[in-house]
């Protein structure tokens, strides 16, 4: 993980609370960093002073906040830039309950997520298009505790410890995953609906438009 250089563009007049567009030449993919601050509904990270606030799972466990990015940071994981959410006392992630995220209308190839799951989970993200189509996109997120990438994800963050409601457990790593979901339709997407699955947690979301699509849209080489 690294901080993204300050060359992102905060785009106005686009849906969503905050969208960063990272301009790129046609020889590179374009990224749209989607802010999810207004959807934060769950505490999955804690500090040693509020351990019992964790609700990552049914046992009240949580990620150690000090081993994760600072709120609001622009970060990069395996070449994918993200906006890390501005956490508050009630939430630092989106526990998936079918929330709708409006996105800048456009053609996208990939949804990249920083995500974690209470045990392995597999569900649906709906992509809604301008022409009325809604595509069912399979998303799989591996267990935050075990560390096995059951869906072939990459590790985004691996902490050295895990938080319990009453103590910090050293030498018990936790994992947040870099997950991606393909968007095969050649169409203008306008919104996404997250899974309706309480086990799944989303911490950041970035949309990627690939080189071929950008060239087909007339991007200058």
């Amino acid at each position: 993980m690294s901080q993204v250089a300050g060359n992102s563009v905060l785009t106005a007049n686009e849906p969503g609370p905050r969208v960063h567009r990272l301009p790129a030449a046609a020889s590179a993919p374009e990224f749209r960093l989607i802010g999810i601050d207004d959807l934060l509904n769950n505490r999955a990270t804690t500090s040693v002073s509020d351990l019992d606030s964790g609700r990552l799972n049914a046992w009240g466990n949580s990620f150690p906040a000090e081993e994760l990015p600072t709120p609001g940071a622009l970060i990069e994981v395996a070449g994918i830039p993200f906006t890390w959410a501005n956490a508050h006392a009630k939430g630092d992630n989106v526990r998936c309950e079918g929330q709708v995220i409006d996105i800048p209308p456009g053609q996208y190839d990939w949804i990249y997520l920083l995500a974690a799951s209470e045990r392995r989970s597999e569900d649906t993200i709906w992509a809604h298009y301008e022409d009325g189509h809604a595509d069912r996109l399979r998303v799989g997120v591996s267990d935050f505790l075990d560390g096995t990438p059951a869906f072939g994800e990459l590790t985004a963050f691996r902490t050295s410890r895990m938080h319990y409601p009453h103590h910090v457990q050293e030498r018990l790593p936790t994992t947040m995953w870099l997950t991606r979901v393909g968007m095969p339709r050649r169409g203008i997407a306008r919104s996404l609906r997250l899974p309706r699955l309480v086990a799944m947690h989303v911490f950041a979301l970035t949309l990627v438009t690939g080189i071929d699509v950008r060239r087909a849209e007339g991007a200058a080489i």
Binding site: A58, R196, L197
Partner: peptide, 27 residues
């Protein structure tokens, strides 16, 4: 495997109802 992951959804929806009183019978 998809069945195993289907169990996650049922189990955790039930567990959160039991522990956190997040009752979602529709889910």
């Amino acid at each position: 495997d998809a069945v195993a992951h289907g169990w996650t959804a049922v189990r955790m929806t039930g567990a959160h109802a039991r522990v956190w009183e997040r009752h979602r019978p529709d889910e």
